[in-house]
Amino acid sequence: MNLQTESEVAAVPEGGVPDGGVPDPGEDHTHLAMHFHDLDQQKSAAKLGMWIFLAQELLFFSGLFMAYFAFRFLYPDTWLAAHELLDKRMGTLNTVVLLTSSLTMALAVRACQLNDLKSCVRYLWLTIACACGFLVVKYFEYAHKFQLGELPGHHYRFEGITGGAPELFFSLYFMMTGVHGLHVLIGIGIMVWMIFGPIRRGRVSSQQYSLVENVGLYWHLVDLIWIFLFPLLYLVR
């Protein structure tokens, strides 16, 4: 999440700039970076940059998804048997938790747009809480699998599955959920930084909420990836 470094910190007012017009001369321009003509340009650049960043995130995960499909195609019976070892209730619980966090994130962005920074921070804490909850559930799932030896590759010791290459299912399970979990962790870090950094220092308001909005976009992507991971890993049919 390197994008936050430049554009969104120096985020942009919206209301002050009439559609397609010249910025209001009375407005505070301190957060307009030197190389932009106006705040509109700065804001739309930040947003486009974020969407391109999300595109490369998708491609990053695509490798894992392709590997998943390749091996599911090679070992369909193993996949069916191995997925029974994942805890569907925990997976469902985490799906609900993560969807809720997306809602609170959207509410945080909304509160920011309405200049209600207090609520914004409250919703961000709720999002962080959900994210932590997600990781706690994940921890219990991982611990259980470590105990049973349902581990990736040559660490695999579980003997309950017959058929080819069950260790590959767990290789992919741990890689996919692990990389996703890393994204959750990074998201938590960015939200905490945002609360104690830019928001506290008054650099976020209804005039300049690009930072919050872009972090929101990132968070929704993390959520969206889980929406694909959950059925692919837990609900194989």
Binding site: G63, L172, M175
Partner: peptide, 26 residues
């Protein structure tokens, strides 16, 4: 990003033996 995840998987292949590219593990 595709080469990034590929090399990432290969690093795990070497250090943890996850076996995605190793025929010995399927």
């Amino acid at each position: 990003p595709v080469i990034a995840i590929t090399l990432f998987l290969l690093v795990f292949e070497r250090t943890m033996g996850i076996g995605i590219f190793d025929p010995a593990l399927g």
